Simulated scan of single mutants.
Amino acid sequence: MSTTSSATRPGRKGPGGLARLGPLPWIGPATLLIVLVVLWPVYEMVRTSFLKISSSGFVRGSAGTDKYKQLFEDPALPSVVVSTVMWTLVVVTTTMVISLALAQLFNQRFPGRRVTRWALIAPWAASLVMTAIGFKWMLNQTSGVLNTVMKDLGLIDGPKDWLGDPSTAWPWMMFVAVFVSLPFTTYTLLAGLQTIPTEVYEAAKVDGTNTWQTYLRITLPLLRPALLVGMVINLINVFNSFPIIWSMTRGGPDSDTATTTVFMYQLKNADIGQSAAMSVVNFALVVVMVVLFLKAARWNQEENR
């Protein structure tokens, strides 16, 4: 009997067929989908921002950087950017604070907890457009429920145009944005709370720490991954939010209640190339915002230790 292993016999061929491709057959479809759905539209968006395009959609040649110059010279852009920053900060911060409180509540045992958890899903399950339009009709100047109730209670003298005035339209749109953002964020933080071992709290109790010290030194640090996930996703979603604002005010009057995303859509009717330029700026702002946030939050701090 030969003692030579079959693996060392001369002429033995290595793995062939799909084995040579490694994980490519598995990640290939996902990679192709990313290229078609993400990278190709981004390329087309950037390319369009350097073209002259008529209102009917015909390309009239290269525009160079003219569309960007026109965009940055637009007198409405500074106020739109400021409004976008305020919109994002207020909605995300309010959502995170309320969601953290709700997650703490739902993590406790109390009668009816299951029902209240189910009820919280309702704003998330409903369409954003449907929710926004529902609030829009509630705030309607002539037939809205809010005006009727407040007038009957003597709180206002006459019907008020809540969405026609930016000073009242912004708070109401922020309220709706927080309302629809709470379910996802709350369940994300609740999942994080439920991964914290009870032994950690028992050890803290033995050490004599009070409730507030336990929350600051144990709960919040261990909840950090869930907080970061909720924060990043909310930053992206709120910054790019379009259905709520467009359904309630269409960014008007003029662009007084528009964010950069809504402003981009408003520009589409006047100049497609300038709208594409605004899209590129918007995309860059999102990337920079998320990168700066992750750096400030020291996402990789735990991995580097």
Rank of each mutant, 00 (worst) to 15 (best):
D152P: 15
S143W: 06
P123Q: 01
R217M: 07
W299G: 10
R109F: 11
Q301M: 14
E199P: 13
P166G: 02
R298K: 04
A19G: 08
G61H: 09
R9A: 12
A276S: 12
G144E: 05
T214R: 13
S143C: 08
T3D: 13
A132Q: 11
A284E: 10
S143M: 05
V286H: 06
P23I: 05
Q213V: 12
K13Y: 09
R12Y: 11
L51N: 01
G17R: 01
T249I: 00
A270Y: 13
P123V: 11
A30G: 14
T188G: 09
I98V: 14
G28H: 02
S99I: 05
P25V: 00
R114G: 15
A203Y: 11
R12A: 07
V176S: 00
D161C: 00
F242K: 02
T260F: 10
A169H: 00
P75S: 10
I156S: 00
V280H: 06
D256I: 00
L77M: 06
G230K: 01
L24Q: 04
R305Q: 09
Q301C: 09
A63E: 07
D74I: 05
L228R: 09
T198N: 07
M289F: 08
L39R: 00
R114T: 15
M174P: 06
M289H: 03
V42M: 03
R109I: 12
L77P: 04
T257C: 09
L32A: 12
A76C: 06
V176C: 03
L139Y: 00
F72G: 09
G57L: 10
A226E: 13
F106S: 08
D254I: 07
G164F: 03
